[in-house]
Design a protein around this nucleic acid. Structure first.
Lengths: 228, 228
DNA sequence: CATCCACAGGACGTAGGACGTCCTTCGCTG
DNA sequence: CAGCGAAGGACGTCCTACGTCCTGTGGATG
């Protein structure tokens, strides 16, 4: 079977990766080799590869070569960020995004409460206390929370949503006393975990997201915050 | 401020969409216009636009023009499908994906149980009964379930995960009596909704996903199912 | 002999031009 | 007035040439 030409170039390149059983980080054929393999011009090859790069399926290193990617959700950040920035429906989309994170985190926090080790609790507490100074601590906190669940997709989704939210967060207006709220909420979560109380942890998580959504609602109430 | 050249072409095009306040479906500048606006060659413009198309940020219609896209998650299907097809970790990734769907659906089904109208229930039941004949009925069932939640992102995520799962489902081996199981599980869910019993609905949903995950586990146990 | 540097080569990045294909529109024709 | 064909706009593909980045090699140097 030579190659049905019905499939798009993109699909044929992906098929090629699977046929050869190439693992992430493996080198892909050269652009010139792909030209010959697929019987097209370098231009078409490059466009297809660029599309695959945008999806995280391949990784391009200038001067070095093209490699199979990890299809990490990180690559998809621009798509989600775009959706959330879209004028009118943007705030709505942002709220949807936070609600999904709430669903994931309140769903998982129960099992986390039953299985978190003492050293991990200490690390979580340290992060919760450092949030005033370092905003990244918030991201690390949520990542560490679900690190033990063994679900890579959840970790990446939560990280993705965090990134997208904080990318547009400045446009939501002044933070008010939010930074204080955040630390309090996170300390409450840690306390519930320390008590190994799943229901209390879930409730603490709900409170946290209630505050986040309240901030979004305040932003929605105010007039269009002026475009860049 | 003319345009800082530090940003990638992609980012500059996205910025241009936001600056002009272009809504989805609006026509984008022509490739030639973008060349002039961004001061690059048509080749570079096309590559950047192709990347944005892969992310669903723009939509290209041959012979007609380029338009602002909806950044629908549908465009991201190839990325998720790739991740799930990746040889060794593929089954693991598929399981992660189903678990995320479980988190979302069990988290939402409670509020659905309290708010689903009679006609909607009838429609759900019809779909549940039609699953033996039409596999799409399953997809429609889950979409209709959460349609009333007002969260577009959840709908798209569940649809995306459904698509990805069913794209690789054939490789999981023979379906056994699964089709029967599916209908039973879904009828149980409808019954719980009809009784307006959130906890029963959640439990029925858990059972459904228990079966799905069991199928994945059986596939993981068997040897590599031979590549295409 | 070990080290450092210049250079050649491979691979991706950008540019410009030419032609093909698809779609729409307008004007001509019957 | 209806139908059809030509023209033009916009994306698709191809080709060629040159620039930039990285690596490995080989010679000059201490």
């Amino acid at each position: 079977m030579p190659t049905r030409d019905g499939a798009s170039l993109q699909e044929r390149i992906v098929a090629l990766i699977h046929e050869r059983g190439l693992a992430p980080e493996s080198p892909m054929p050269t652009e010139v080799q792909l030209m010959e393999l697929l019987g097209t011009s370098r231009n078409s090859v490059r466009e297809a590869v660029r599309a695959l790069q945008a999806l995280g399926i391949v990784e391009i290193r200038h001067g070095h070569g093209t490699f199979v990617g990890h299809a990490s959700l990180e690559a998809l950040t621009p798509s989600f960020a775009f959706r959330v920035r879209s004028g009118a429906g943007g705030i709505r989309a942002l709220n949807d995004l936070v609600e999904v994170r709430e669903l994931l985190e309140t769903g998982l926090i129960g099992q986390v409460a039953q299985s978190t080790s003492a050293p991990r609790l200490a690390a979580l507490e340290a992060l919760a206390n450092g949030m005033d100074r370092d905003r990244e601590a918030d991201r690390a906190f949520h990542a560490l929370l679900y690190d033990s669940c063994g679900n890579e997709l959840v970790l990446q989704l939560i990280g993705l949503f965090w990134d997208v939210y904080h990318e547009v967060e400045p446009t939501l207006g002044p933070p008010e006393e939010r930074t204080a709220e955040i630390a309090v909420n996170h300390r409450r979560i840690v306390a519930a975990l320390r008590a190994r109380d799943p229901e209390a942890a879930r409730e603490a998580m709900r409170l946290h997201f209630r505050d986040v959504k309240a901030r979004i609602a305040r932003a929605e109430a105010r007039p269009e915050p002026a475009r860049t």
